[in-house]
């Protein structure tokens, strides 16, 4: 390739914005060929490929983000958009209110408690433990909690995404093995444990699961910010 052209494009937002979209479309097409295989997670495939390209080409994350920020920005309105299925299926939500609240409190305490316990067990420093503690919540909230606890928000963002992908990959085989057939319960669990990435997975499996996943994500963001101090 023409070197001057590459230097010009690699620093422009357009290349990384267009590149992210193209890789994503290719990854979803690939995942669509084997819809039953949760290991072909389009989010994981896209991140892995782009990260590899950036490392190989020696491009800094800051440069990449200048283009990708336009996609990143849509996380806000997308969270608001989760209110629409909430409105459309309000009666279904109301009839599950008691199990939802019980699962929220116990699940939220478990998510933070288990993370802090294992992080101590593996001998991580207090700053890393604080960075990991809110990892089940949505990225923006987790980063705010982490910096409030003297953690490293950038590390938190990476671990949040890792947690999301991990939950999105294991939820379907795990729930099938546990013989859980109630999609409101399955969705709620993955939204609580794996925030928006779990919710994206839930929507691709079942609309009711997606609905409950989105609600769990929202509620857990609030509760985690209140209870995280109990563990640190």
């Amino acid at each position: 390739m023409n070197n001057a052209l590459w230097v010009y494009l690699a620093t422009s937002p357009l290349l990384w914005l267009a590149g992210t979209l193209v890789v994503w479309l290719a990854a979803t097409a690939m995942a669509g060929l084997r819809p039953g295989n949760p290991l072909l997670n389009p989010i994981m495939l896209t991140i892995a490929l782009i990260a590899a390209v950036l490392c190989f080409a020696g491009i800094e994350y800051k440069t990449y983000f200048e283009g990708a920020q336009f996609i990143h920005f849509l996380l806000g309105p997308a969270t608001v958009a989760l209110g629409i299925p909430l409105y459309e299926k309000l009666s279904l939500v109301k009839s599950n209110l008691v199990p939802m609240l019980a699962a929220l409190v116990v699940g939220s305490l478990t998510a933070v408690g288990a993370t802090v316990f294992f992080a101590h067990l593996f001998g991580f420093s207090p700053s890393v433990v604080a960075s990991l503690a809110p990892k089940s919540t949505t990225a923006a909230v987790a980063m705010a909690i982490s910096s409030g606890l003297q953690g490293d928000p950038a590390l938190t963002a990476a671990v949040v995404v890792l947690t999301g992908i991990c939950g999105a990959i294991i939820v379907t085989p795990m729930m099938n093995a546990m013989r859980i057939k109630d999609y409101s319960a399955r969705g709620f669990a993955v939204g609580l444990a794996s925030h928006g990435i779990g919710t994206a997975r839930a929507y691709s499996v079942d609309p009711v699961a997606g609905l409950f996943s989105g609600i769990a994500m929202g509620l857990n963001a609030v509760l985690t910010s209140l209870i995280v101090h109990l563990f640190l």
Binding site: F65, G164, I165
Partner: peptide
């Protein structure tokens, strides 16, 4: 799903 890619590449 695509909305989580920029943060994940971090």
């Amino acid at each position: 799903g695509i909305l989580f890619v920029p943060a994940g590449v971090g």
